[in-house]
């Protein structure tokens, strides 16, 4: 149903590439790492621009507040770590970055149960919920390589804090060469009439598979990539509510406070309708990513079945 092109690429890899590509356009851009540059893929930038790379060691809290100091002097720091370790320093983020409106770009990789074997301690599952409480910080979870690279460039040009949420796992490329990322706008991939599936990040691929299965069962699915979780595209959500009246959110994040929470809040205030939140209901655990997605119901067949049953209810 949704065509994919080229090879699947993890959005952390897209981030690493994008940094190198925009380095000359943003001479004040600097990159900070807390001993995870090889994992967050900033290592390319580290090698290409060592004088603009700041290695702080395993000190995420210090990294966040140092970045605010660097931003005060005109630098544009991109600071990267696993999403849970970075957003886990929420106390530093809220005061040094959010409240101060510091021009710091927070980049959390390895989000969700999709990271697999490392288990819960390395899985960001609550980060969106925390970050959504800060009034001035856009939250962007790009869905594929092209979108991720454009989101990185957008973040560099945007004056103020941004949170980019990136995957460890490879993501199929579903945007064409002419794709234009628009911050804050829902990216509708297919219009439909019976149910709207609003997916973000790691859940996009299984949701696309579910959409195919549902179509085979005669259910006309609207499929939308929600890359910007804050600010939520309220106009689109209200439009879907009016047109279709049934919304399912899908995310590799806790069902509390993430995309599901954001959409529910938007609906409740603007145009209520039935909705179903698909996401993580427990703490994470170790296992192969595919096995974890299976266990948590994040496969095409499991999603299709859940949606089909819910539509009947």
């Amino acid at each position: 149903m949704i065509a994919t092109t080229g090879k699947a690429i993890a959005t952390r890899g897209s981030f690493g590439e994008a940094l190198c590509e925009i380095a000359n356009d943003f001479p004040n851009l600097v990159v900070m790492d807390a001993d995870l540059g090889k994992s967050t893929k900033t290592v390319k930038f580290m090698n290409a621009h060592p004088e603009r790379h700041i290695q702080v060691g395993i000190q995420e809290g210090n990294m966040v507040t140092m970045a605010a100091g660097l931003a005060t002097m005109g630098k544009i720091p991109f600071i990267a770590s696993f999403g849970c370790f970075l957003i886990g320093r929420f106390e530093q983020i809220r005061l040094s970055v959010g409240y101060a409106d510091a021009n710091v770009k927070l980049v959390g990789t390895h989000v969700g149960i999709g990271i697999g074997a490392d288990g819960y301690s390395q899985m960001a599952l609550e980060d969106i919920g925390m970050m959504r409480t800060l009034p001035n910080v856009p939250i962007i979870q790009p869905g594929d390589h092209r979108e991720a690279k454009q989101a990185v460039a957008w973040a560099a040009a945007h004056k103020g804090p941004v949170y980019l949420r990136l995957t460890r796992q490879d993501m199929p490329q579903f945007h064409g060469d002419d794709y234009q990322f628009q911050m804050g706008k829902a990216d509708c991939l297919k219009k439909g009439a019976d149910v709207a599936l609003l997916a973000t990040g790691g859940l996009l691929e299984p949701t696309m598979a579910a959409a195919v299965l549902l179509a085979e069962q005669g259910i006309d699915v609207e499929l939308t990539n929600i890359h910007t979780i804050k600010p939520m595209d309220d106009a689109y959500i209200a439009d879907v509510s009016r047109r279709i009246g049934r919304i399912v959110t899908l995310e590799d994040h806790s069902v509390c406070g993430g995309l599901g929470g954001a959409v529910a809040e938007s609906l409740a205030e603007h145009e209520p309708c039935r909705m179903l939140r698909i996401g993580v209901h427990t703490y994470g655990e170790s296992g192969e990513p595919e096995d974890l997605y299976e266990k948590h119901g994040f496969t095409g067949p499991a999603i299709a079945e859940k949606v089909r049953t819910w539509l009947k209810g």
Partner: peptide, 28 residues
């Protein structure tokens, strides 16, 4: 609080952060 009064450089009050901020300024 940054942004309220010109000349206030760092938002502080949650203790322990200022030296990191200062190190960031110094490094820049």
């Amino acid at each position: 609080s940054v942004g309220f009064l010109p000349g206030i450089e760092a938002s502080t009050g949650s203790l322990g952060m200022g030296l990191s901020f200062a190190a960031g300024v110094a490094l820049a």
